[in-house]
C-alpha cells in the first residue's frame, strides 16, 4: 500500500471519492485475482462432454418418482449414451421386482475351491470397469481353524486351487434386510427392493461414499474415475438398476444380477461356479433349494453381531477335511 509505515488516517467524508480512489488502487488487484481464478479453473476445458449433465439428465427424477414416460425417456437416453460411446445398440430395460419373491443366496464353503470364476463372470455380466479394476466379489483364502475374515488372504496366487490347508470364502453384497448402507444414504439413492435386493439409482447418487464406510461387508464400490470398458466386452443386455454403464463419481454394487434373476434366471456368479457351491432362489418358496438349505443345513451369516440381517448365508457340509487321504477327499465318504 504505502511506503511509509507511519499510519495516516485520512478521514474521507465523501463516499464517491472513497470509491474512486479505491477503484484506482485496487482495480488491478481485483482484475488480477479474477484472471487467476479463470486460469485456475482452466483444467475444466478437459471436462468430458458426457460429464456435464444435460438438462434432461439434470431434471431426471428419482427412480421411485419416475412415471412410465419418464422412465422410457431415461432408458432411451441411456441407449443413446451407450451407442455414442461404444457404438453398440444395447437392450436397456427397467426390470421390476415380482411379488411373492424374496431372494436368498447360500454358499457352501465346503465346495468352494477358490477358482475366482465368479469374480470374473460378474465383471463380464455387469459391465464393471476394467480400468481401474472394479469387482463386486472378493474370494478370501482362509486358514483352517478360523472364520475370522481378517485372517483371510485376498491376493492368493497359487498354481492350483484349492489348497489343502485353506478353505475359500467368497464375499459379495449380502443384501441385508436391515442394510446400513440404505440407512446412511442422505439422498435415498440406495434402497432395498421388495424382493430383498439393495439397489442404487446411479443417476441419483451424489458420491459421498457414506454407504461405503457403513457397509460391514465391504460390498460397495466407488467409481473414482471414469470407468473404461472395451467395446468388445460390453454386455448389451442392460437394466436401469443393475448393469447399465456407470459414470465416474457414483457408487455401485452387486444386485444379484437382478436383470437376470427377476426374470427367473440364476445370477452370473452361480452359473459359472464349477462346483455348485453357490445356491440361489426364492426363500418364500418352501421347496426352493435355498429354503431347503436354510432348513436342513447348519447355516451361518458373516458378522452376525453387526445385526444387518444378511440374505447371504454360508454353510459347510463335510465332516472331514478334504485333504485327508484320498478316500475322504471327495468329502462324500460320510
Amino acid at each position: 500500500m504505502t511506503e511509509d509505515t507511519k499510519p495516516e488516517f485520512a478521514e474521507v467524508t465523501s463516499e464517491r471519492s472513497f470509491n474512486r480512489r479505491g477503484f484506482l488502487r485496487n482495480g488491478l488487484t481485483v482484475v488480477g485475482a479474477m484472471t487467476a481464478c479463470v486460469g485456475a479453473l482452466s483444467p475444466l476445458r478437459e471436462l468430458d462432454g458426457d460429464d456435464i449433465p444435460s438438462v434432461e439428465k439434470f431434471l431426471q427424477r428419482h427412480y421411485k418418482e419416475m412415471n412410465g414416460d419418464e422412465m422410457a425417456s431415461a432408458l432411451d437416453r441411456i441407449r443413446r449414451e451407450v451407442k455414442k460411446r461404444w457404438d453398440i445398440d444395447p437392450i436397456v430395460r427397467d426390470v421390476r421386482a415380482k411379488d411373492g419373491v424374496e431372494f436368498v443366496y447360500a454358499l457352501n464353503l465346503s465346495r468352494c475351491i477358490g477358482c475366482r470364476k465368479c469374480v470374473h463372470a460378474c465383471v463380464e455380466e455387469n459391465n464393471q470397469s476394467r480400468s481401474p479394476e472394479l469387482q463386486y466379489i472378493r474370494v478370501l483364502e482362509m486358514p483352517r481353524g478360523t472364520t475370522d475374515i481378517e485372517k483371510g488372504n485376498h491376493h492368493y496366487d497359487r498354481p492350483t486351487v484349492p489348497d489343502d490347508d485353506h478353505f475359500y470364502m467368497p464375499i459379495q453384497c449380502h443384501q441385508c434386510a436391515d442394510a446400513p448402507c440404505v440407512k446412511v444414504c442422505p439422498v435415498e439413492a440406495t434402497w432395498t427392493e421388495s424382493d430383498g435386493i439393495t439397489v442404487i439409482d446411479y443417476d441419483w447418487c451424489i458420491g459421498c461414499r457414506y454407504c461405503e464406510a457403513a457397509c460391514p461387508y465391504w460390498a460397495r464400490r466407488f467409481n473414482y474415475t471414469k470407468p473404461e470398458i472395451p467395446a468388445a466386452d460390453i454386455n448389451p443386455e442392460m437394466s436401469y438398476l443393475s448393469n447399465r454403464p456407470r459414470e465416474k463419481g457414483v457408487m455401485e454394487k452387486c444386485t444379484f444380477c437382478l436383470h437376470r434373476t427377476r426374470e427367473g434366471k440364476m445370477p452370473a456368479c452361480l452359473e459359472v461356479c464349477p462346483t455348485g457351491a453357490r445356491k440361489f432362489g426364492n426363500v418364500l418358496d418352501p421347496d426352493s433349494e435355498v429354503s431347503q438349505i436354510l432348513k436342513n443345513k447348519r447355516v451361518f451369516v458373516l458378522k452376525e453381531e453387526v445385526g444387518t440381517l444378511p440374505r447371504f448365508f454360508y454353510y459347510f457340509d463335510e465332516r472331514y477335511p478334504r485333504s485327508e487321504g484320498t478316500a475322504e477327499a471327495t468329502g462324500e465318504a460320510k
Binding site: F58, V187, E188, C205, I206, G207, C208, F222
Partner: peptide, 17 residues
C-alpha cells in the same frame, strides 16, 4: 470437495433422507 457428483447437490433438496 469430497463428493463424487457435485452437480447433483440439489438431490439433497428433492429427497432428503
Amino acid at each position: 470437495v469430497d463428493m463424487g457428483r457435485v452437480d447433483r447437490m440439489h438431490h439433497m433438496l428433492l429427497r432428503f433422507n
